[in-house]
């Protein structure tokens, strides 16, 4: 055989009954501050702590930077959930940046509520650089929460994933 292996015929696929739609994985945007939460994610990574991988992380210098516009834009572009994270109170690298983050977050939450989006799609968490386990735990919890809520109305995948098997949870290494 010099032409390489032949592709198997597709007969097998025909015989199986119609498959259930593929399990749906949410798209989550995580905003993390440079000093605590992003480092916390790093800790989770180097410690090889398992967690669900369905999020994109956006690093900002301080959680106080995360204004409503960022979060709302994420939802507009189809994010199913947004997690805002920063240093614990008193630990902020910029002394009071996370207090600003709370103010901004409260405003965002009000607008999200008005828009009729489920509150569970938005979450604020404080994660320090040492809390790798906690990071993984928060991510798992939040991903499951968003998964039960289903796709956001502005997620382009909404149409295809109707009738998906809820609660399926593939675990991959971080």
């Amino acid at each position: 055989m010099t032409t390489g292996a032949k592709r198997p015929k597709r007969q097998t696929a025909k015989r199986t009954p119609p498959k259930a739609p593929p399990p749906w994985d949410p798209s989550i945007v995580v905003f993390a501050c440079n000093w605590c939460s992003y480092a916390g994610a790093d800790t989770a990574g180097v410690s090889r702590i398992q967690h669900q991988p369905h999020f994109r992380m956006i690093r900002v210098m301080c959680s106080g930077r995360i204004q409503p516009g960022f979060v709302l834009r994420a939802f507009e572009k189809g994010a199913d959930g947004v997690l805002v994270s920063g240093c614990h109170f008193g630990d902020c690298h910029y002394i009071f940046g996370n207090e600003r983050a709370v103010e901004q977050f409260e405003k965002t939450k009000e607008v999200v509520k008005l828009l009729g989006l489920e509150e569970g799609r938005l979450r604020l968490e404080w994660i320090s650089a040492a809390e790798g386990v906690r990071f993984a735990q928060v991510i798992n919890e939040f991903t499951d929460q968003v998964r039960t809520l289903g796709p956001s109305p502005w997620n382009g995948k909404r149409q295809q994933s109707v009738g998906r098997a809820a609660g399926q949870r593939p675990t991959t290494e971080s």
Binding site: P68, G69, P153
Partner: peptide
């Protein structure tokens, strides 16, 4: 305002939720 209000308006344009207005 970081485009927040524009985002809100675009989400309303796409629809799909019941606003609590």
């Amino acid at each position: 305002h970081g485009g927040a209000l524009q985002s809100v308006m675009r989400m309303m344009a796409k629809g799909g939720t019941q606003q609590n207005r």
